[in-house]
Amino acid sequence: MKKVFPILCVVTAVLLSYALYQALEVAPTEATMGDVQRIFYYHVPSAWTAFLLFTINLVASVIYLFRRSVKADIVALVSAEVGVVFCTVVLVTGPIWARPVWGIWWTWDMRLTSTLIMWLIYVSYLMLRRFSSSGQTAMLAATLSVFGALCVPFVYFSIWFFRTQHPSPVIGGGGSLDPRMGRVLLINWLAFLFFAFVVCWSRYRLEVVKREVEEAQAMEDLALPRSAR
């Protein structure tokens, strides 16, 4: 396993730079938006990766609720953390693109709003993990994750109905994508997936070590007499 990790890092680095080259050089310039459109190759893969990670978080939380497996808990924590990072990238790149194209930084459009609410829910998940005392964190966090997932359809439907009453610009509503752009998009997504996986993996190992240290510390704190150690 230890050998695989550096190899994976190298592969990810190569893939990311290739994807960058593809996005900046190879992909055709968009006819009306110009070069600004290229942020799309970061925006969309980040969004897909974030949603994938949030799904993994839900699955791991449910597994934890049934099996009480520590591994599942760590996976849930890691996927939520990295998912929030990617979701932040989505929320930051979106306005950068929207400003020149729509003329506004932000609009309370359906997708923007639901992504923002999703982000809020997972930030509150991380806050809960940060604030709860160690023994109960896993259980409480898993419950909150299930609640967050229950909330997603409501967010979607409420915002959908709310915003269809006040029409606003929406991208990609049945629009077609140049196949070359589609290919670059997929390459970028692949690179992002590798990147997310590498980050999650190292974070996972860090968390495992952290818990081992804590456990060892707790054992020491049990105040065994020195001779008994």
């Binding site: 609410i117 809020l120 509150s124 809960l128 709860s132 909330c151 967010v155 915002i159």
Partner: peptide
């Protein structure tokens, strides 16, 4: 109840989930 500074924690947990409602 199981967290530090629980009075602050409640709105932080409750509000995001309650947004659609």
């Amino acid at each position: 109840l199981r967290t530090r500074s629980r009075e602050i924690m409640l709105p932080l947990l409750l509000f995001p989930i309650s947004i659609p409602a």
